[in-house]
């Protein structure tokens, strides 16, 4: 299927330890999928492996982004192919301003040597910042340096809006956020939602899904998806807890 992110039988190890075990999932454009699961089950590994992090060794399997294999590509090539990962813990980049950072990311998407329309860029950047209620002064600040948890997440959403990816993976974007920050993230995702993007929301808690209503919910356990359902699955999980999944699997 060329209009989807199609992950098939993905096996991923960190060092000697296998984390993802024949993981498969297809996210069509236009849908929002939530992946839930207990800690240590491989949710973040999935995000990092898809983004091409060198510490995560893909031993077999594939991930097709609109038909294009991204496994084995460099992280920057994967990003330019259209995959965006919102980090659980975004890095601080001292000395690199947000404006220059996003600009470099956009320039990397242009044909080599093509002129960059700085005026249009700033107009767009300010528009998005206003929508996210970010002070315009942030453009001159170093990326994430000294930001609060909520500001970092807002900065992730800003980048996502500016880079217009085909698929986005939100890696526990809600962790450590208060309810206001949670709303900002959710509003950002909801604003991005549409027929041109597929979104995967990885979360440990159901509460984010009060604000982002997913089309599908998947339960992940021991490196693969063990349950899939609609948004009601999240409520069921919330009521029964993850032990329910573990018991069911053991049976």
């Amino acid at each position: 299927m060329s209009n989807s992110l199609e992950i098939k039988d993905l096996n991923v190890s960190i060092g000697e330890r296998q984390i993802l075990k024949n993981f498969s999932l297809t996210v069509p454009k236009g849908e929002v999928h939530a992946i839930m699961g207990p800690n240590g089950t491989g949710k973040s590994t999935l995000a990092k492996a898809l983004a091409g992090h060198e510490d995560y060794a893909v031993t077999s399997g594939s991930a097709l982004l609109d038909g294009e294999e991204i496994i084995g590509q460099e992280p920057d090539a994967i990003a330019r192919a259209g995959l965006f990962m919102a980090f659980q813990y975004p890095s601080e980049i001292p000395g690199v301003s947000i404006a220059n950072f996003i600009r470099a990311a956009l320039v990397a998407r242009q044909p080599k040597g093509a002129p960059f329309d700085a005026k249009a860029y700033y107009a767009e950047l300010y528009k998005k910042m206003d929508a996210l209620k970010m002070d315009r002064k942030f453009t001159a600040r170093s990326v994430n340096e000294g930001f609060s948890g909520g500001e970092k997440k807002r900065c992730e959403i800003l980048q996502m809006m500016m880079l217009q990816p085909k698929y986005a993976i939100m890696d526990e974007t809600d962790s450590g956020l208060d309810i206001d920050a949670l709303r900002i993230v959710a509003d950002g995702v909801n604003a991005m939602r549409g027929p041109d993007i597929g979104i995967v929301v990885i979360t440990h808690y159901q509460r984010l899904l009060d604000y982002i209503v997913p089309d599908k919910v998947h339960v992940m356990y021991d490196g693969r998806i063990v349950h899939s359902g609609d948004k009601n699955l999240a409520l069921e999980l919330e009521a029964k807890g993850y032990d329910w999944v573990k018991k069911e699997l053991a049976a």
């Binding site: 992280p75 975004p90 890095s91 980049i93 001292p94 690199v96 950072f101 470099a104 998407r109 880079l163």
Partner: peptide, 30 residues
Amino acid sequence: LDTSELFYMQARGIPKETAYELLVFGFFEE
């Protein structure tokens, strides 16, 4: 150079060489 910072920049589509330069110049910028 911090490899997690390099990865973060690459994950935004910035080629490794450019990311490296931005980080080094960022170090100077202060």
